[in-house]
Every structure is written in structure tokens, then in C-alpha cells.
Amino acid sequence: MARLTDAIKHLLIVNILFFVATELYGDQMYQWFSLWFPKNENFELWQLVSHMFMHGGLMHVGFNMYALWAFGTPLERMWGRNKFFFFYFSAGLGAALIHTGVNYFYFTQGMDALVSSGISETEILKVLANGQYNTDWYSIASKNTIDNFLGSYNTPAVGASGAIYGVLVAFGMSYPNSELFLMFIPVPVKAKYFIPVLIGLDLFSGVTGFSLLGGGIAHFAHVGGALFGFIMMWYWKKNQFNGNRWN
């Protein structure tokens, strides 16, 4: 096994420490460090970064940390530690912004429907702040609209996946012909084929609500991280900036 590069090593350590702390303190960690919707009373600005170190279980953190090591290591060796850190956290912040923006759309859509029926916004927010909802709301708007409305307010985002999707895009653009050996595919697949398909599946699941990758996934955070990763890589390559190392 190759020696861990500096940025990867430190990210692994911090993620594992957060995971252990979450196992010990549970709900308190999720309340403080997950990314909540801005109108939720649990929201704090630091969560835009801290949510990247939170995970929902052993499989979640395990897959993310493996992907970070496997795809991030060659990028850090090419770019240097500081440039990799910049890219990683920029992709993660981009993922958080896209995820929050989509949630804002869902929240506004649901709120507008309820307010137009004569319910005051203050009353609705009071119900939500108490961790409740009114079943009558489902007679005012569609089930999908109300489910998305409640989910945007009540469900926090956790995980490094958004940042890692940015790393995946950078890896695919830097090493497009690298052959990936995947447990669920019996033949090697080139990065330039696998990574766009993976992002496309997330986009499909996010738009349709029909998840092919499992439940409880912040699909638009993945798409956001990939989008910001692509924009950074495109800009760096266009400006001949991609080959510069930041040690």
C-alpha cells in the first residue's frame, strides 16, 4: 500500500475522529455539525464545513474514505497538499450550496402552497420548530410537495460525498483512461465512462425522486460537488493552472 499523502492522511484522521465522536455522542453531534436548512433553529454557519466530516454509519464513512484515498492520492501527488485542500473544500462547499439551494426551492414551494390556503407562515414555522407537521397539509398540496417541504426543513445533510464527487471528476479529467475495478462490475471500466454515468444516476435520482443508489442520499449534493469540481478543473486547464503545485 502506497504511503499516505499529507492532505489525505489528515482528512482521514479528522473524519475518523468525528465518526468515533458521533458514535459516542450521537444526536448531539448530528445537531451541532450536520448541515441543516438555514431556517431550522439548528443551523449554524460552520455546518457548511463541518458536515463534510459527519457520516451516517460505518459503511458510509468507509466507502467515502476509501474513495478519498483511492482517487484523491494521485491528485494530491500531482497538485501538492495545499492545492488539493483548496479543491476538496471548494467542491464540498459547492455541494453544500447546491444542496441548500434545492432545499430552498422545495421549502418555498411547500410554504407558498400552505400560505396561499390561508395558513400564516409564522404558524407553519412554529409547528415545524416543534418537530411536528399537520396532516391537513397533505390535502392542500401534493404528497410529493409536502414530503419535499418537510424533508428540506427536517433532514440534515452529512458526509464527505459532495467533496469526493468533485475529486472523482478531477480524477476522471486528469486520468480518463485509468481502468477502475469495481466490486459490482466484473470487468474494468475506464474512469471517463464510469464517473459521468455515476453522476448521471445521481442527477436522475434527484430530479425524479426515484433513487437507483439507495435511500437517504443527498443526490443534489453529489451533483453540486461534481459541478464545482468540473468548473475548477475546466478553469485551471483553460488557464494552464492545473499543472502548478501548491506545496
Rank of each mutant, 00 (worst) to 15 (best):
A2V: 10
L4H: 14
D6I: 11
I8S: 01
K9T: 10
I16G: 04
F19E: 05
T22M: 08
T22F: 05
T22I: 10
E23H: 06
L24N: 04
Q28A: 10
Y30S: 13
Y30V: 14
Y30W: 15
S34C: 12
L35S: 01
L35M: 05
W36K: 05
L45A: 14
Q47D: 07
L48T: 13
V49S: 06
S50G: 09
S50H: 08
M54N: 05
H55L: 07
G56F: 02
G57S: 03
V61H: 00
G62Y: 02
G62W: 03
N64G: 14
Y66N: 07
A67K: 05
L68P: 00
W69G: 08
W69D: 09
F71K: 00
G72H: 00
T73G: 06
T73I: 11
P74F: 03
P74S: 06
L75S: 09
M78E: 15
W79K: 01
K83L: 04
K83P: 00
F85S: 05
F87I: 03
Y88S: 06
F89E: 01
S90R: 06
A91V: 05
A96G: 02
H99F: 15
T100S: 04
T100R: 02
V102L: 12
N103Q: 15
F105W: 08
Y106W: 13
F107P: 03
F107Y: 04
Q109K: 14
A113Q: 08
A113Y: 02
S116L: 10
G118Y: 09
S120W: 01
I124M: 03
K126F: 11
V127Y: 05
L128S: 04
G131H: 05
Q132S: 15
Y133M: 05
N134Y: 08
T135W: 08
T135H: 10
W137C: 04
I140F: 03
K143E: 14
K143H: 12
N144R: 12
I146L: 04
D147I: 07
D147E: 14
N148T: 08
F149A: 00
L150Y: 03
N154D: 11
N154L: 11
P156H: 14
V158Q: 13
G159M: 03
A160W: 03
S161Q: 07
A163I: 04
I164Y: 01
I164V: 13
V169K: 04
F171P: 00
F171I: 13
G172R: 02
M173G: 08
M173Y: 06
S174N: 09
Y175A: 09
P176C: 02
P176H: 03
S178L: 09
L180R: 01
L180K: 02
L180N: 05
M183F: 10
I185L: 12
P186R: 10
K190D: 07
K190V: 08
A191N: 07
F194I: 13
F194A: 15
F194Y: 15
I195A: 01
I195L: 11
G200Q: 05
L201M: 12
L203V: 04
S205R: 06
V207I: 12
V207Q: 07
V207R: 06
T208K: 07
T208H: 09
T208A: 09
G209H: 09
I217K: 07
A221G: 13
H222R: 14
G224R: 00
G225N: 01
L227Y: 02
F228T: 13
F230C: 10
I231M: 12
M232Q: 12
M233T: 11
N239L: 14
Q240M: 08
Q240P: 13
F241Q: 13
N242L: 14
N242E: 15
N242Q: 13
G243P: 12
R245W: 06
N247Y: 10
